[in-house]
Nucleic acid binder design. Sequence first.
DNA 1: AACCCACATTGATTTAGATCAATGCACGAT
DNA 2: ATCGTGCATTGATCTAAATCAATGTGGGTT
Lengths: 232, 232
Amino acid sequence: MAFPELFERFAVEVLPLGVSDGTHLRFQSVARFVTARAGDAPFRGNGKDQIAFVASGSTKLVAQASQGREQVVAFHFAGDLVSIPSSTAHAYSLCALEDCELVYFPADKFLALAQEESGMVAEVLTRALRALERCREKTVALGRKTAQEKLASFLVTMNDRVGAVEGNQQEMSLPMSRKDIGDSLGLTIETVSRQFSELRSLGLIETQGRSGIRLLDLEGLKARAGHVLAAA
Amino acid sequence: MAFPELFERFAVEVLPLGVSDGTHLRFQSVARFVTARAGDAPFRGNGKDQIAFVASGSTKLVAQASQGREQVVAFHFAGDLVSIPSSTAHAYSLCALEDCELVYFPADKFLALAQEESGMVAEVLTRALRALERCREKTVALGRKTAQEKLASFLVTMNDRVGAVEGNQQEMSLPMSRKDIGDSLGLTIETVSRQFSELRSLGLIETQGRSGIRLLDLEGLKARAGHVLAAA
DNA sequence: AACCCACATTGATTTAGATCAATGCACGAT
DNA sequence: ATCGTGCATTGATCTAAATCAATGTGGGTT
């Protein structure tokens, strides 16, 4: 995709309707366009906060802990806006799961420009609150769930986010490896694999190759995910 | 504290300078004022997102998982703004650690009003991004750290947030119990207690009664926290 | 179509932290 | 001041998941 088209995709998703041409142009002038191959880490924390828009493909935001341990903090798909912090207790890097097209902005300039258009800050705020909500749900899983509950809730969440394949509502193709899933759920590859096998033998899922997954019993999975809905 | 004073504290902290009188009044008209005693859960998820401002005291945001397991998603102190989600996979409740004064807003009305003043949305966005950053750091701890690293990073973080007692930079009084700390770090009370003892015997901290903690060696604690800073 | 290699699965063993069980102590109530 | 209760500490045992160790397999490459 050519750069102008890339930026247009960002504009359509994130800039509110009726944004002024001036703002539009100023955003474009601070944007940096990057294409990344699967496995690349096009961005590493470099002391300045950044904001990335995922125009196509999918990414993971990874934090490094000591001794080579890694924690996947979030996965992102086309249309997502990612805030990448830099002055935190852990180094973060954004990493492509599949080939990706990304639009980068320095966070300070992005936020300053956003303030020119009131609807724009609101849009970014909405997205930030959604990201916060997802992060909190992940916190619950990491802190208080068993391996099986973690994987079950992961699959239910991903089913919502990556959407259906070829019309079947409960069929999806996951771009991340077992290692990525483990690093996201605080588990090892082996435990993830064993839980996949377990869910398979319980008749809740079917796998096809390395990335194909069909949820045979969404309600059953939710029941095993340890969710507790708010009382009405 | 009387309600007008309570609201004023919110206005000073969150409303940007020079906000119009009209907006100021409209905010006040949708606000609900609540005082809570230590241990109270003045707010339980009820189907509508809410925003709470902590005027005084401190709170925890707790998510329920199945079988009575609880995860503390965040702690809050005077001056903090909390977003309380409702339609998530887990039921959340805000709970007072000490006697508290709170100002509640329905999230939809709060956000609509915020858009009347561009600086206001920006302020809320800044706070949301800070909350997101904290939540991500917590994710790293929960997913990839040992009990000792979890407690060490918790203490370092709290030292930043609750600040100093009586001039001593590294002395603080924590409002939360061992149970709360465990529910925040994904550990049991016993493990938290054992790690307190361990850090004590390593000469890194000193405890005084149930809530007093002195960090004797902040650098030593950070070294045991498993942090990995971004390379310059 | 056959090959290769990284990824995934399965099995055996170990271990960090949970659970079960007393004991100790802080701090508010009397 | 003392008392009693709930919180914290310490100890013994158990277990879910990690680690160590092969073996299998999907999917890209030639």
